[in-house]
C-alpha cells in the first residue's frame, strides 16, 4: 500500500511538471530572444560600438549625440506627422465606413472584402504600386494630362515638403479597411434595444451616433489606436518601397534611421540607442494597455 501511494504521488508530480517542461522552450526563447536581446541592445547603446559591438562603456553619450543629429530629429518629426495623420485618418475612414456599412446595406458581402484585401498585401507591394501611381511622369498626373486636364499637378512624392504625406496615403490605403472591420465588429456588438429606446425618445440619427453609439465603441477605439500606433512606429518596409527615405532624407523615419546607422553607417551605438527610444515609445503605450486588459480579465 505505501509503495502504491508514493507511485501515485510520483505520477501526479510528474504530471504537474509536464506542462512546465512543454512551456519551457517557448518561454526560454522569449526570455532570450526578446528580453535578453533588449538588455543586450540597451547595453550596446551605452558603448562606443561602431561597425562591430564593442564593450567600452560610454554612459549616455550615444543618446546625447543621437538627439543632436539633424537626421534623427527629422525622423522624429516625420514620425509625429506620419503617426498622427495615419491614426486619425484611418480612424475617421474606418469608423465612417463601418457606420455606413451597418445601415443594412445590400452588397455588404462584396464591399467588405474589397475594403479589407489591402491588409493581406506586403507593404513592399503596396509601396511598389503607389510609388508608380504617385510618380508625376507615369501615374495620376500623367494620366490627368492625357485626359485633357493639363494643369493638373500632383508631384508630392518628388517634393521634400510633401513626400511624407504620400506615406500617409499609402499606409491609410493599406490599413483603413482593417480599422473598418474592428469598428464594424464593435457596432454589431451593440445591443439594438438601446438604440431603439433612444429612437423612441426622439433622438435624431446624428445624436444617436454621437451620444450613444460612439461612446459605446470605446473599446474598439482603444484597440484601433494601440494597433495603429505600434504599426506607425514599426513602419519600415513602406518607406523603403515607396520613397527609400527620400527625396533626400525627407521621409526618413526612426525605423529607417536605426537600420542605416547600424548596418550601413557603422554607428552601432547610435543605432542601438535609437532602437531603445523606439522600444520605450511603444512600451509607454503597450504596457498600460496590456496591464489593463490582463488585469481586467483576472476578476
Amino acid at each position: 500500500m505505501p509503495i502504491r501511494t508514493t507511485r501515485a504521488d510520483l505520477r501526479t508530480r510528474l504530471q504537474d511538471f509536464i506542462p512546465k517542461i512543454v512551456l519551457a522552450p517557448s518561454l526560454a526563447a522569449i526570455l532570450i530572444f526578446v528580453y535578453g536581446f533588449i538588455v543586450f541592445t540597451g547595453y550596446l547603446s551605452m558603448t562606443d560600438s561602431k561597425m562591430l559591438p564593442s564593450f567600452d562603456f560610454v554612459g549616455l553619450d550615444n543618446y546625447v549625440r543621437l538627439f543632436s543629429l539633424p537626421a534623427w530629429n527629422t525622423a522624429l518629426i516625420n514620425l509625429v506627422i506620419f503617426a498622427a495623420l495615419y491614426i486619425a485618418i484611418c480612424t475617421v475612414i474606418g469608423l465612417g465606413l463601418a457606420i455606413l456599412l451597418d445601415q443594412k446595406i445590400r452588397g455588404e458581402g462584396v464591399l467588405r472584402p474589397i475594403y479589407l484585401y489591402p491588409m493581406a498585401l506586403s507593404f513592399i507591394v503596396t509601396g511598389t504600386a503607389w510609388k508608380w501611381f504617385l510618380d508625376p511622369g507615369l501615374g495620376l498626373e500623367n494620366t490627368m494630362h492625357l485626359w485633357g486636364w493639363t494643369d493638373f499637378q500632383f508631384n508630392w512624392i518628388k517634393d521634400r515638403h510633401m513626400a511624407i504625406y504620400t506615406l500617409v496615403i499609402a499606409a491609410v490605403w493599406q490599413t483603413s479597411g482593417f480599422v473598418m472591420a474592428m469598428f464594424l465588429a464593435g457596432l454589431r456588438g451593440i445591443d439594438n434595444e438601446i438604440l431603439k429606446a433612444a429612437q423612441i425618445d426622439g433622438a435624431s440619427n446624428f445624436a444617436l451616433y454621437r451620444r450613444i453609439v460612439i461612446p459605446l465603441l470605446r473599446p474598439a477605439f482603444l484597440s484601433a489606436f494601440v494597433i495603429l500606433f505600434h504599426m506607425a512606429i514599426k513602419s519600415y518596409d513602406l518607406v523603403i518601397a515607396l520613397t527609400g527615405g527620400g527625396p533626400g532624407r525627407a521621409t526618413e523615419l526612426p525605423a529607417t534611421f536605426m537600420y542605416s546607422y547600424t548596418f550601413t553607417r557603422n554607428s552601432m551605438g547610435i543605432g542601438a540607442a535609437s532602437a531603445v527610444i523606439m522600444l520605450m515609445t511603444v512600451a509607454a503605450i503597450m504596457i498600460p494597455y496590456l496591464y489593463s486588459e490582463l488585469g481586467a480579465k483576472k476578476e
Binding site: 530572444f33 536581446f37 541592445t41 542601438a272 512600451a283 504596457i287
Partner: peptide, 16 residues
C-alpha cells in the same frame, strides 16, 4: 511577457 513581445519594434533585436 509573451504578449508584449508581439508588439516590440523589431529594431531592438536586430543587432543581437
Amino acid at each position: 511577457l509573451m504578449l508584449f513581445a508581439c508588439f516590440i519594434p523589431f529594431q531592438i533585436v536586430l543587432i543581437p
